[in-house]
Design a protein around this nucleic acid. Structure first.
Lengths: 283, 283
DNA sequence: TCCACTCTGTTTATGCCGTACACGCAGTAG
DNA sequence: CTACTGCGTGTACGGCATAAACAGAGTGGA
């Protein structure tokens, strides 16, 4: 067993598997277990039991629980498809990746529960990170801003996933649905009458048809990024040499061909115009 | 001891404290402990030791660890000032509240670590929630959207706080600063050359002067909300009876007085225009 | 052939944790 | 005097991660 956690994560899977325990088998068993019971339901004992070995046998292959979780993370990250259709426009690309990450978190809810800032990324995690950063290349954002946007988006997905996970877990553990549970907290509702805004929103039905938390948040976030990108675009245009000034597509930020007719162009392609239109309509 | 968790949270503090244990004393000791050691460093044994009683004595006053955490949460929430200067404009108000929540999480890092969706809110938490929701009253947002925005903002603050907390904890536990730790992961950096976008961003200094994660995210988020509010304002204007149509302030959304001169007004007051200007300049 | 060494898995034990349960004791109301 | 209630204690159970010593099987060299 390698004792450098980096070496362990970036190890190459042995080609023909030998009998007995192996890092790969341990990680796969742990992932299955965590998929079912969540991260805090994952214990070295249970992993070992599932594989038919003693607890301590795992430590021959994996330094400890924390590193096992790191390995699981990278295993799960490998599910990110690498051959996404290359859509035009940073917005469409970013949204697609965010939804993908969201999907993976639905399959592996524990991913969002992993805590700590010192997790060494494995090859799949790095590939995915690189891929995310790449979606913003070609925009006028500064490097530090690209990184900040991707970080923000990642934390957003995790936060939303966490919400989902915890709801699910508590429902399974208690056998009572979230709605039912809150519905029977009568002694709480009795006291909420004092609070004017909550009462008003309650009476106007704000809680009856809630927004889809993930899609709502994603849209706000992308709108916020769009505002920044437009700002940077404007700045870029203004500082560009007057003679070589070019307008950019409102949807994807690419440069526009000069318009044939007198009417200035807004989008670089029919696809972009349609996307913009559809987004407006969706709401 | 009340066995309904709601009753416990909404209990009234006894006026003249008697000797011995009490819910209030337990909660305060627990908060101090968690402030220092984080949520996972909080144990019933330690709380009891700090108070000079046996572990099990706590259970006479508090049903269990989970409920103790609920009580601690509400205790911490009571630090939200209730008499904020009432600024004009939803944006300024929302930003102020978010920064306040952020401040509180710096004092009580464990707040962001509390997991689970079924925490009964206590009186302070509800008051604060009501206060947040109220910031968006008067905008054209629909009720469900008001709720979604506040939820989103809350999760954002928690996610950012979590990042901070974990960095701090790992630094204290290991004695090695975050930068130092990552700096000595040589075997990792050796492998990052394969990834083109990461490499490019690295070389252009993207990681050398990172954005302030909280302020950056907050601005993006508020920009995203602003986009939505503008959209709703437009819709409201369009569907309003033609004769009584009124424009709204681009900054705060309030209705505008009709302009005296021919030039249409954009802001409702000098204060609003200055705010908008300052925001643009800040970046 | 024998020995040393390594690789893999086991056994045992330590020290945390939350909390169930039975008990002791003081104050009090009937 | 008695029964009861409220508060704090002591002991014990089952769970957790993991340190340390150990056992056996396979292997390479003398």
């Amino acid at each position: 067993m390698s004792h450098d956690p980096v070496e362990l994560l970036w190890r190459e899977e042995e080609p023909q598997p030998r009998p007995g325990l192996s890092v790969g088998r341990i990680v796969r068993a742990a992932v299955e277990l965590a998929d079912a019971d969540g991260l805090e339901g994952l214990s070295m004992r249970k992993v070992a039991d599932r594989l038919g070995f003693t607890t301590m046998s795992l430590y021959r292959h994996v330094p400890g629980r924390d590193q096992l979780v790191d390995l699981m993370r990278d295993e799960a990250m490998s599910e990110h498809p690498t051959d996404l259709p290359q859509r035009e426009g940073w917005r469409a690309r970013l949204a697609a990746i965010a939804r993908q990450a969201w999907e993976i978190r639905r399959r592996h809810p524990w991913l969002a529960e992993v805590r700590g800032t010192r997790h060494v990324p494995g090859p799949h995690a790095v590939a995915h990170y690189d891929h995310m950063l790449a979606t913003l290349e070609g925009t006028a954002l500064r490097p530090s801003e690209v990184i900040a946007v991707i970080g923000l988006l990642g934390r957003f997905v995790d936060a939303e996933a966490l919400l989902l996970v915890e709801t699910r877990r508590e429902e399974r553990r208690s056998g009572v649905s979230e709605e039912e549970w809150w519905g029977s907290r009568d002694s709480l509702y009795e006291r909420l009458g004092r609070y004017p805004t909550i009462t008003r929103l309650w009476e106007s039905g704000g809680w009856d048809h809630p927004e889809d938390s993930f899609e709502f948040g994603l849209r706000r976030l992308l709108d916020g990024v769009e505002t920044l990108i437009r700002e940077r675009d404007k700045y870029r245009d203004e500082t560009r040499d007057e003679s070589s000034r070019a307008e950019t597509c409102q949807e994807c930020g690419n440069e526009l061909e000069p318009a044939a007719s007198g009417r200035p162009r807004v989008y670089c392609s029919r696809a972009c115009r349609q996307r913009a239109y559809r987004r407006r309509k969706d709401d």
